[in-house]
């Protein structure tokens, strides 16, 4: 009997670090979010998408948040990150994006923040096709302040300020964003991690105003006030009640209490951004006299002098 060589043991590099440790502010953990809250999953999807999109340099990503549970996102993501005021992430991001076209500006915030108090900014940033990615985490409620009605709360759902049920109709966010001019519109739930990651990867490589709604469980407030169980139960609900239809009529995307959630990528088109139009319009009239905005002077410290990367 010939001696057989012992089977080769595949030796992997030992894992000493969390794969996302470069992209998260681990020194801030534990985070403030509740167990089984969907926000961690959404942050994870954003991080994974960035890792999987080598075209974008993490040093050239900025995250801007407003105020709320979702608004804490900027605090945990290790990029140049800005935690602003309630509702104002989009105009802050507008200034940042216009002054720094070399940066990929991502707004990460909640439904109340972006659609209620910041609603005016949403429609105008979309109309102008401002170059930014908006990740709107919709938990159907104002969570940070204790579960009050949001403009996304489904009719009949209970909140702390609609104790007998919400009488108002909610916004249909994809329809709203698309009708205002967003050039990329998608909706996923926190359960659709791979599809959400794919969407984020797509918008990271895209110019213009991209809007991704992420339906996300808030077990502590939305679920508790409406007897919907735990975060896991909500995930199960998404599993059983969501339907993917990229071709869905935008008008049909309303979300009813305990109703179906239609997900998908609904809009993906190319259209000139605010900056493109500004330059074109002025150049058309001024000709040679037009001087386009250039990056301001700032010290270059990082080794990767990737000036070529600057997309116009």
């Amino acid at each position: 009997m010939s001696e057989e060589a012992p089977p080769k043991i595949m030796r992997r590099k030992p894992v000493t670090d969390h794969p996302m440790s470069d992209l998260l502010r681990i020194d801030r953990f534990p985070h403030v979010w509740c167990p089984t809250c969907g926000l961690g999953t959404v942050v994870n999807c954003l991080g994974t998408s960035i890792l999987k999109t080598p075209e974008v340099d993490p040093n050239h990503i900025a995250v801007v948040s407003g105020i709320g549970c979702a608004g804490r996102g900027a605090g945990y993501l290790r990029f140049d990150s800005f935690h602003t005021t309630h509702g104002r992430a989009l105009p802050f991001a507008t200034g940042l994006s216009l002054s720094r076209p070399d940066m990929k500006v991502i707004v990460f915030s909640g439904d109340g923040d972006i659609v209620s108090i910041g609603g005016n900014h949403l429609i105008h940033a979309a109309r102008r096709n401002m170059d930014m990615v908006v990740i709107c985490v919709n938990n159907f409620i104002y969570a940070m302040t204790g579960g009050q009605t949001a403009p996304t709360t489904p009719t009949h759902a209970r909140s702390s300020t609609s104790p007998f049920g919400n009488s108002d109709p909610p916004f249909n966010l994809p329809y709203l964003a698309a009708s205002c001019g967003a050039t990329y519109v998608a909706r996923w739930t926190a359960l659709h991690v791979r599809r959400l990651q794919k969407s984020i990867s797509e918008v990271l490589k895209k110019k213009g105003f991209s809007f991704i709604e992420v339906i996300s469980p808030c077990p502590t407030l939305y679920a508790r006030l409406n007897n919907l169980g735990t975060g896991l139960d909500l995930m199960r609900f998404y599993h059983d009640n969501s339907e993917i239809n990229n071709d869905a009529d935008l008008k049909s995307l309303d979300i009813n209490f305990k109703g179906k959630i239609i997900c998908g990528k609904f809009v993906d088109l190319d259209s000139p951004t605010y900056r493109d139009r500004y330059d074109e319009e002025n150049e058309h009239i001024l000709g040679d006299k037009f001087i386009p905005y250039d990056l301001p002077d700032f010290p270059h410290i990082s080794s990767n002098s990737d000036k070529e990367k600057i997309e116009k």
Binding site: R25, P58, N59, H60, A62, A74, G75, R78, F79, D80, S81, F82, H83, L96, R100, D102, M103, F298, P299, H300, I301, S302
Partner: peptide
């Protein structure tokens, strides 16, 4: 400076 790897908050 933004975009230079400071990754500040």
């Amino acid at each position: 400076p933004v975009g230079e790897g400071y990754r500040f908050h």
